[in-house]
Write a protein that binds this DNA or RNA. Structure first.
Length: 627
RNA sequence: GGGCCUGUAGCUCAGCUUGGACAGAGUGUUGGACUUCUAAUCCAUUGGUCGAGGGAUCGAAGCCCUCCGGGCCCGCCA
């Protein structure tokens, strides 16, 4: 029972008034006020003003008049404002108790939007030939956060990580190992994924321009990758699994987790493509081009002015997109599942991570398909994703079955590019794995951990090294996750090394710090606050403001879940933290002489603490008790 | 040439889905607050023709149209 209930009650009552007065049915909004005009506001009078040919204020007066009988327990006053808004004033002596008691329950912020329905999310999906860079981190954090929000709203979420282990980028490092003379062992101290990406991949791709033979070799390697019995394929499997294992360490460090790893090589060998291709032919979604530049190719017709997309080359081989289509169809459960599943690892949160296999002798069948699929890939792939979305909507007869959640990429600031040895003349620049121009995820985490360790030690010199390290880690991961999530998906993030080290203002540490402050108050109080009281003493502006914010948690979750917009939760966390800091500054909880008041305030602090903890948890950010 | 995204304070961004009450934050500037529940904090100060123009509306940062600036994508590569 929270703000949401308030809104719903007012909405229903206004609807009743509309019916009673026989007014036209319109879709009005009841929402929390942004400014200091009561607690809840409604725009119905603006909308009705048009139909009734009256001024909004006149309509507001009529409706607020009619609302009088509905006033009572939760709403004590309704006011028709000059501007035309109808403003409602909550009865805090009642609402306080309701919100505070609800907020400390385990299920606070758990909403049943999904009704346990299955949703599959794919994210991360990094080529297994290099270490993760800061751009991949945006994908991982976005995907993981959306998964957390959907779980919180009672969806049965399964997270997939697609491993493109048979693509060109993998072929590149195989060429490097087999024909470029690179050792299979990295120099001491270097992670294998970093060695593959920073050294083998970069140096091998450099050689192609001066060595055309090597490019021929790459083509042959690429072909051999598809044949599971070839030595190249076996070797590649060994290498990519090693890279993958290192990449996953980074993902786990970022608090991300998965349910299943899907290997592209197995999708190719499974024969799923043939089935989908036949289906597409039947449904006339692809056709064989007779003439023109795509003669003898199977193509998908472009919409309007868009180019046709080649599916099968004139030599009969399938193109890149022909690997993605069966995978998408498989995720939607449109094809019989050819895979078996083996245990890859048990993750830190206790969840088992499975991996696909084609080996029938292995243990089990699992189900990682759903009627609803969310694929998280950056918007540079929007065009391809749009083709797949269209196809899937026809297969599934559902426009929204397959959703591409796109986001803008992470670019490097010119100063950061310069530290990597590239002069971009003041402009930001796209990262490039091939050129070795990127900021490595592990190294940025390390830098942040070092910095947060120093900051924490400065404030808590008496603390044990291990505890300091744990706090530093939680704050560092919080910082990087928050930076990746706080802006909208369609905004480019310009990554700057020095700016990313900021721990003040609108950052995770700011928010985490409020949690530490609240913990300390509760600790110093020396007793567990008693919630069995009426909370009528909490009536100053800081207390009320804080209770109000706490009561808005579930509204934000609904918004975030419906729009796949984790930023909403990030903004909520920040606003809630700001409100708490104002309270902290102006209300000395433990100083008061009135014991009952201290108790009620401690309840409020406790309520805040658990709400901010839950809200940060949705972002995959932990809340230390000390900082 | 076509498609997608974007333009709000010096800088980085909310607000736009659902038009309505003085356009909000952070950072930066300048000044102030730690014998007090941790100053990773708070308070004050400074700062905006909401890219430009037009349209519909009683009313536009938001909706429609045109233009301008910036980014990304458009291979029988993956």
């Amino acid at each position: 029972m929270t703000f949401k209930i308030l809104l719903e009650e007012i909405y229903l009552n206004i609807q009743k008034i509309i019916d009673e007065l026989d007014l036209p049915q319109i879709s009005f909004v009841v929402e929390p006020t942004k400014l200091n005009f009561g607690d809840v506001t409604c725009n119905v009078s603006f909308l009705l003003a048009k139909h009734l040919k009256k001024k909004p204020y006149e309509v507001a007066k009529i409706i607020s008049e009619k609302y009088q009988p509905y006033l009572g327990k939760l709403i004590k006053k309704v006011d028709a404002h000059q501007s035309g808004y109808i403003n409602f004033f909550a009865n805090y002596s009642q609402l306080n108790t309701i919100i505070l008691k609800a907020s400390v329950k385990d299920d606070y912020g758990f909403l049943d939007l999904g009704k346990k329905s299955r949703i599959v999310i794919e994210h991360t999906s990094v080529n297994p030939n290099k270490a993760l860079h800061i751009g991949h981190v945006r994908n991982i954090v976005l995907g993981d956060t959306v998964a957390r929000i959907l779980r919180q709203t009672n969806f049965d979420v399964k997270v997939l990580n697609y491993i493109d282990d048979s693509g060109l980028q993998v072929a590149d490092i195989i060429v490097g190992f087999k024909y470029g003379g690179f050792s299979e062992n990295p120099p001491p101290g270097q992670k294998f994924d970093q060695y593959c990406g920073d050294v083998v991949y970069v140096k091998t791709t450099e050689k192609y321009s001066s060595n055309p033979d090597l490019e021929e070799t790459r083509k042959k390697v690429l072909q051999s990758l598809e044949d599971e019995k070839s030595d190249i394929a076996k070797f590649a499997e060994k290498i990519t699994k090693k890279v993958l294992s290192d990449q996953l360490k980074t993902c786990w460090k970022l608090s991300a987790s998965y349910d299943c790893l899907n290997f592209e090589s197995q999708i190719i060998r499974s024969g799923l493509w043939k089935q989908v291709f036949e289906k597409m032919k039947e449904m006339k979604l692809t056709h064989l081009e007779k003439e023109g530049k795509n003669a003898n190719c199977w193509v998908i017709k472009g919409e309007k002015n868009e180019e046709d997309k080649v599916l099968v080359r004139s030599n009969g081989t399938a193109t890149y997109i022909a690997k993605d289509i069966p995978y998408a169809a498989w995720k939607l459960g449109l094809l019989p599942d050819p895979f078996y599943y083996t245990h890859y690892a048990t993750q830190e949160n206790g969840k088992i991570l499975w991996q696909t296999t084609l080996d029938k002798s292995t243990e089990s069948k699992q189900d990682f398909t759903a009627d609803k699929v969310l694929t998280i890939i950056d918007s540079r792939q929007s065009r391809l994703q749009k083709i797949i979305t269209n196809l899937m909507s026809k297969f599934k007869s559902d426009e929204k079955a397959y959703v591409h959640l796109g986001y803008e990429s992470v670019t490097l600031s010119s100063t950061t590019a310069k530290t990597l040895g590239i002069d971009t003349q003041g402009k930001t620049t796209q990262m490039s794995g091939r050129k070795g121009l990127y900021v490595n995820a592990d190294s940025i985490i390390d830098l942040l951990e070092k910095k947060t360790f120093e900051e924490t030690k400065k404030r808590n010199p008496e603390l044990d090294e291990k505890i300091l390290q744990q706090i530093a880690h939680d704050v560092a991961i919080g910082t990087i996750r928050y930076e990746m999530i706080k802006q909208d998906l369609d905004k480019i993030i310009t990554f700057d090394l020095s700016k990313s080290m900021s721990l003040e203002g609108d950052t995770a540490p700011y928010i985490q710090y409020t949690h530490a402050r609240a913990s300390r108050i509760l600790e110093k109080a020396g007793f567990v606050p008693n919630f069995g009281v009426s909370f009528e003493l909490l009536d100053n502006e800081f207390e009320i403001a804080l209770i109000k914010q706490i009561g808005k948690f579930d509204l934000q979750i609904v918004d975030a879940a419906n729009n796949f917009s984790p930023k909403v939760i990030a903004r909520y966390c920040y606003t809630l933290a700001v409100t708490f800091n104002a309270f902290y500054e102006h209300v000395k909880v433990l100083d008061d002489k009135n014991k009952s008041l201290i108790n009620e305030r401690l309840c409020l602090v406790s309520s805040f603490k658990s709400t901010i903890h839950n809200a940060l948890g949705l972002l995959g950010i932990l809340s230390p008790n000390m900082m």
